[in-house]
Computed example of a mutant assay.
Amino acid sequence: MTDRTQDTPRRPGEPALTALGLAAPAPDPADASPHAFPGGGRWRTEVPSCEGPEALAVVLAEADRLDVPVHRISQGSGVWMLTDAEITEMAGATAERGIELCLFTGPRGTWDTGGSVRTDSGGAGPRARGHDALAGCVEDAVRATGLGVGCLLVADEGVLWTLHRAREAGLLPADTTLKLSALVGPVNPASYAVYEGLGADSVNVPSDLTPAHLTEIRRVSAAPMDLYIEAPDDLGGFVRMYEVAELIRRGAPLYLKFGLAKAPGIYPYGHHLREAALASARERVRRGRLALDLLARHGADGGMAPLGDRTPPRLKRFPPPSP
């Protein structure tokens, strides 16, 4: 990362547009998020869709080559798609570097036998259908944390509340973090606050939220926000690199997720998808380098949270149910 040379980050194209009489209005300080990560810093980085030890090795090697700092690496196929040996290898490799590893929990409606998710309405979407699917998510959580995984990715509000209660009851390690999937991301301040109350330590929001939407959320919640700077096609395919500085200003504490548009779907991953998985993993890191370079050119690359720190802020939770 380069040192900032300006007290105030410049906007894209600002000098040329100002010279032409097309300067943008000054940012409103009231729009800025007042929140930060506990260890200091306003943004962290995440490389998503890292589907096994081989893809993880590619991500780590490419991050070294391109000097891309990585706070979190996440997987989308699910705990149940990995062997114990694979999970242990991934947990060990990330722990050595102080990177948080996040694995997806359990069955979800988009992959089970429910037909409604294949209708135009999408039915119940990725939620865990029935007691058995809920139990599968809990089984995944217990297994993954027992093998050294510190972060669990969740796509159902009931699963989230159950895993939070399990964490509070000592059934999961107390420092386990729970991350809400982009598949169910909230789109307004009230729903964002609900997921915080249910136990989310970071919340994916859809990549089409405007900067004003992020400010509205930050007025009610300090829970870290996960946002694809480039979204996969099934989440819209949006590319928002030129907005990164403003997204940080409005949405901090923010995880910058280096996704990839125009990439083949690889969930659930297996070796039949190996070449696509490794190539896309490598390119996600390169996309991260592009975003970080853009921040540096605009003098906006300050404020990154320290590497190795995965602590979430102290957040507001709903009270446990009465016995």
Rank of each mutant, 00 (worst) to 15 (best):
T162N: 04
A141Q: 06
A155M: 09
V138W: 05
S116C: 03
G109T: 12
V138Y: 02
A141L: 00
G158S: 09
T113F: 13
E139M: 03
G170D: 09
G136V: 01
W161Q: 10
G170N: 09
D140K: 02
G150V: 05
V154W: 00
A166S: 10
L160P: 07
A166Q: 10
L103K: 01
V142L: 02
D175L: 01
G123I: 14
V159C: 11
A144Q: 07
V154K: 00
L147D: 00
V149K: 00
A169H: 13
T162I: 09
R129Q: 12
C102H: 06
C151P: 03
C151K: 04
G148H: 04
T119V: 08
G106Q: 01
L134T: 11
W161M: 07
T110C: 06
G158E: 10
D132V: 07
V142E: 00
L171S: 10
A174P: 04
A144W: 04
A155N: 13
A128H: 08
L103Y: 00
R129F: 15
G123R: 11
W161A: 15
A169T: 07
T162A: 15
R127Q: 14
G150W: 03
A174G: 14
C102T: 14
A169C: 08
G136T: 02
L134N: 10
L160T: 04
G106V: 04
L134S: 06
G125I: 11
A133I: 05
R165Y: 02
P173I: 09
P107K: 03
